[in-house]
Design a protein around this nucleic acid. Structure first.
Lengths: 122, 122
DNA sequence: CAGCATCCCGTGGGATACTG
DNA sequence: CAGTATCCCACGGGATGCTG
């Protein structure tokens, strides 16, 4: 069963509503990190365990929850292989790649910001 | 006294660190809303009370805190007029305007996302 | 391996009231 | 008007352990 990916309209419209949607969909501590991980490793086989190991500090509980949220929003794809033991692979969807421009802009802004702020303290 | 605008280096570097910086600086429930507000109203006189009234749902405590954080990061400017009663005006800085491209991208992504997700439920 | 169940805690953030 | 001070709670999220 897929959880509702977007909440009911809040008391705002237009641009604010849209921004709220984005923040709700991509916000939280791990979602963008996970997307970034899967975008960079698009051609790899990314299993749950591998991600848990690679993404520094994440717990299995949070990884599981965030993966579900991202899947509900069609940003990532989950593929289960009925082997024994079971193996699951996660990958970025074409749609999920649309978050790359967001990630890039956040990365670039962060780099500039660190320089700007730090040099003003010298 | 100005609070430290950027936290100590976490256990990550490069792109991840940069993204974390951005999220830390602009994250939270209200920062981007406030920046958006001040960017749109660049030529207005934006006082504390006015913002508290206009930004739907924000409390004076949060508004006060977020304004301080944004000022510490040089994204907004605070100007106090020693009148009676005291009057304070807030405005976006030139540097603060650099967040506009982030806001725009989040707004645009949110608009598309709502359409994409909602139509897949019809 | 992939993930859920439990327990638990810090803190983001709301409500209300008060001050210079 | 422009905030501060308190109180308080929900919930994000960590740690540990268990199951199919």
């Amino acid at each position: 069963m897929v959880k509702k990916p977007i909440s009911d309209p809040p008391a705002c419209t237009g641009n604010l509503l849209a921004m709220r949607d984005t923040l709700e969909t991509l916000g939280g501590k791990w979602k963008l990190l996970i997307l970034h991980y899967l975008i960079v490793r698009e051609d790899d086989s990314n299993t749950f365990k591998k991600m848990e190991r690679d993404i520094d500090g994440i717990s299995s509980k949070m990884l599981s929850k965030e993966l579900k949220d991202l899947e509900a929003n069609k940003l990532i794809k989950r593929e289960e292989q009925k082997t024994k033991p079971i193996k699951v692979e996660y990958s970025i969807t074409e749609y999920g790649k649309s978050t790359k421009e967001i990630i890039d802009i956040l990365v670039n802004w962060g780099k500039k910001h660190r320089i700007n702020i730090l040099e003003s303290y010298e």
